[in-house]
Nucleic acid binder design. Structure first.
Lengths: 347, 347
DNA sequence: GCTATTAAATGGAACGTTCCAACAAATCAA
DNA sequence: TTGATTTGTTGGAACGTTCCATTTAATAGC
């Protein structure tokens, strides 16, 4: 029971009556060893309860078989889905991904990255925390460790990014709302220190402009990217003199918050106020009413990120191309036509 | 750019004009070093872009500062919440938790555990995958590594478990349904290869018996512990000659599925059929109608598990007491009275 | 029978840290 | 002055692997 001194390959060697080199070869599945010898060694390994020491091995070998996955918000189901996609790919490549959560805290992120590097990971897949300073990854870059960003990009970094087509997604969603006859539109949630925010907001603005909505008929309310943030956004919007009749939300969490707040005020999401989300998390289809949302294929993005990482590791490079994932609008029940508008179509 | 040979403490030593031992001392924050020397060394560390090699260090030091967290289903928000609770505790203890997902797959679990051990973790917090064989942890136990189970326990294992009071939770929920006048009750979801299942089902059965519901008026439908499973359970139940009027669900996911299926049949959850969930995930309060559920304080359980682990590591023991977390029923809108029953109270 | 060739196994030198015992220099006690 | 003590610093031996160069044993070619 009491933790006796750990067995090493020398213990195995003694037990099996061979040299440590032979044991090492067996451990690595080398074909140079006679099958009978290998069998004998494997038996000894079992007998002494040996645990391979990867730290010692990495001292000589170039790189390990673990990659780090740093996620800014594990409680967002979106990231969990993405993580699962990555794991599928890595598993079949014999790589074990270790996940660490930063809870959107740059200081925590720093610690986590440091720890992962010290552990000797072969690569890093990161969804950076909000407020990450541009220099946060310099150290890792100069160490020559492959990194890829997912979902979020940093202002002036040349690290490859795997992300959905935020601009187009927002454009599609906005066009859908305008097509339903809405003429006073809002963009809810998110904050301007995120690059993604500007991408999505950009799509929203471009659609409005291109489809004849005047800038004074659009409303932008920043807020937390959570249910709570959504609730706050709606309150702010409805307090205006001429409130909007529809909103594109930064993500589904915000959209859920908005729908909640509508209900609390006795308004019916969809009928009285149109809501579109972004991400299309699984919950979206199960809400009442089911949420219209921009599907980004989170698991697919995760897989893509994993593939890019594998390729970077194999080719020992630290560069790769960005990958912008296709999006598509999934129309459900959360946005009906503008009831206050005349029945005639566009202006 | 190209990954130049990694800097070691010897490089630092050369750069700073001291010995490697001095550098090592500085890295460990020893007070034995003259402040000016320490400063000089720290500057050199910065200059050469040094990354500490924990693998090499662990070769001499007894144990590392990382613990592994093995979770059976990362996409269940419940586990994400629990993980966040653990992280809070570990962070303040200077320990970095690495999370790995097994996706309810015992083979994957084996791989993940192996990898974590090879990495030299100081301890393991595990929520075992369904179908884990009793011997799966023997190796780890004989290695003298502290393990804690969360949420689930293995049939004949003496590994400490941190879990909610499943029996009492189920009892409370069932009593609530009976108090509302329901006389034909169902237990939905889960499967009998989980110990938790028997605990919860046991609470349900005991409440029924104790409060005068005949066994023939109860219905137990096993099923997946997901929305899909919940849908299937309800279909099965409503196909019976005398269907139940209320159900306790194995967890919230199942409950959401049941509510969904009710709606699809034009029945209103709460009014036409009472539903209680288990776990009280965040979504529960946001559903329509808001779900009555047994709150288990997931983050609290996570914190507790982390504390137990810390204590085990400190006292270098592999034993600890189980911890059964308090539960309480959160009554919301998903279970009204039995409309088919007479107005008179209990039999 | 002898040398080449192949197959199987091995010793020893790394790898980057920690930690102990030892040392040098300065301060103190006598 | 000598010896003891304190303060800062240092070399060297581990730690558990991998991998190269080498040895030994067995087989083939002539």
């Amino acid at each position: 029971m009491a933790s006796r001194p750990k067995a090493t390959i020398l213990d195995i060697a003694r037990e099996a009556g061979v040299s440590k080199s032979t044991v090492s070869l067996v451990l690595q599945g080398s074909g140079l060893i006679r099958p009978e010898t290998a069998l004998k060694v494997r038996k000894a390994i079992e007998d002494v309860g040996y645990v391979y020491n990867r730290g010692a091995a990495n001292l000589r070998k170039a790189h390990s078989n673990v990659i780090g996955m740093v996620i800014n918000d594990l409680t967002n189901p979106f990231f969990a889905e993405m993580a699962v996609g990555m794991e599928r790919v890595f598993q079949s490549a014999g790589i074990v991904p270790f996940i660490a959560n930063t809870a959107e805290n740059p200081v925590r992120q720093e610690e986590v990255l440091k720890s992962l590097m010290e552990q000797g990971v072969a690569g890093l897949i990161v969804s950076p925390a909000r407020g990450t300073t541009p220099g946060a990854f310099r150290r890792i870059e100069t160490a020559g460790l492959p990194i890829v960003f997912t979902m979020r990009r940093l202002p002036e970094s040349r690290i490859p990014v795997i992300a959905p087509d935020n601009h187009r997604g927002a454009w599609l969603a906005t066009a859908h709302l305008i097509g339903k006859g809405h003429r006073r539109l809002a963009f809810f949630g998110g904050s301007s220190d995120l690059v993604v925010y500007h991408e999505r907001l950009g799509g929203f603005r471009e659609a409005c402009e291109g489809l004849g909505i005047a800038k004074r008929d659009t409303l932008v309310v920043e807020g937390e990217t959570s249910r709570k943030g959504g609730i706050a956004c709606l309150e702010t919007a409805l307090a205006m003199a001429e409130p909007p009749t529809a909103a594109l939300c930064f993500n589904d969490a915000v959209a859920f918050g908005v729908m909640l707040a509508l209900r609390k005020r006795g308004l019916e999401p969809g009928a009285d106020f149109a809501v579109v989300g972004f991400d299309d998390v699984i919950e979206a289809q199960h809400y009442m009413p089911a949420l219209t949302s921009v599907a980004v294929d989170s698991a697919g993005l995760g897989e893509r990120a994993a593939h890019v990482m594998l390729k970077m590791i194999q080719s020992r490079t630290t560069r790769a191309e960005d990958h912008i994932g296709a999006v598509n609008l999934v129309v459900r029940d959360s946005c009906g036509p503008d009831r206050r508008a005349g029945m005639g179509d566009a202006a």
